[in-house]
Design a protein around this nucleic acid. Sequence first.
DNA 1: AATGCGTGGTC
DNA 2: TGACCAAGCAT
Length: 369
Amino acid sequence: MPYLTTRDFSSDVSATSTTQALLAWYDKHHRELPWRVSPKAAAQGKRPEPYHIWLSEVMLQQTTVTAVKSYFTKFLDLWPRIEDLATAPTEDVMAAWAGLGYYARARNLKKCAEAVAAHHGGSFPDTEEGLRSLPGIGDYTSAAVAAIAFNRQAAVMDGNVERVISRLFAIDAPLPGSKPFMKQRVVELTPVDRPGDFAQAMMDLGATICTPKRPACALCPINDRCLALAEHDPERLPVKAAKKEKPVRFGAAFVAVSPEGEVLLRRRIDSGLLGGMTEVPTTGWTARQDGGQTAEHAPFTAEWESCGAVTHVFTHFELRLSVFRAAVTRDSDTGWWEPVTNLHAQALPTVMKKVITQAIPLAFRKHAS
DNA sequence: AATGCGTGGTC
DNA sequence: TGACCAAGCAT
């Protein structure tokens, strides 16, 4: 591995022994990911596609690698270049994103693609500041894209890095207040030489070794300098503020089926919860089960038949929906009628797929007829 | 600064 | 099995 031995750290004040230990570990133990260029190929001059790095980073915001992989592949199949994404119908992008969650990301993804195509000639800005000004790109993503795609010396801090740093330096102060202090530690560790590999090394370490529960400290390349390990309890860090209790909200959802085998759908407004996504008609979602969750409150009169309930847990509340179904002639103007066989191609969030499955058990069967 | 914003995997 | 939590952003 000559690319390791020919590198000259002596002139790099940022390349502490901790940094070098992490990079050496990354060279051996890095994860293979669809959007990633291996450190060996990177050392030979191969650069990752900024479009791929950006797309993967947005998908990975608060989302696991496992969940992202198939979506990343699907998006590249549908829209191989950022210009393709910029000119794609927004509904198509929302439909492709359905199931991944945090749907503002999909709306901003589309806006960002349009901005890059319109104002940057189809090329991403190659600095942290330039990237930071784009929709859906914040502190983390701007630093990650700058470092990984453009080899800029940007200090990347995500949940993984917070965990690694808080343990390495035994930082007892709770998040998010301790974030600026931790960020400064990352700045000091980030090398001029391989900032992108260093960021990915920190995140891989956090994902595979320095895990939230039962960290594999025996395998850690920097266990000899970890202050939390020296104190014999790395798992207690980082300290986070206590979470608030999740309230319960109640509502009713109405699955209307036409004689032609279509379901009545409508589009949610662009802002707020599930913004811009597709749904079946529902009542409002209220804190109390107060009689407003019955068929009397359906958007129109029909022979509504109860088909049980669906519970879905969102980030900040738990939703319990009573589900109703009725055979209805196509006379409603509250939305559009979609063939059951085409529901899989709609921008239906998971909670709505649950509702429709409750009312029509085989709705999402492969090759439904 | 605190809150709103999804989902599925893990133990 | 329910609580935790995963490569955060916008406001």
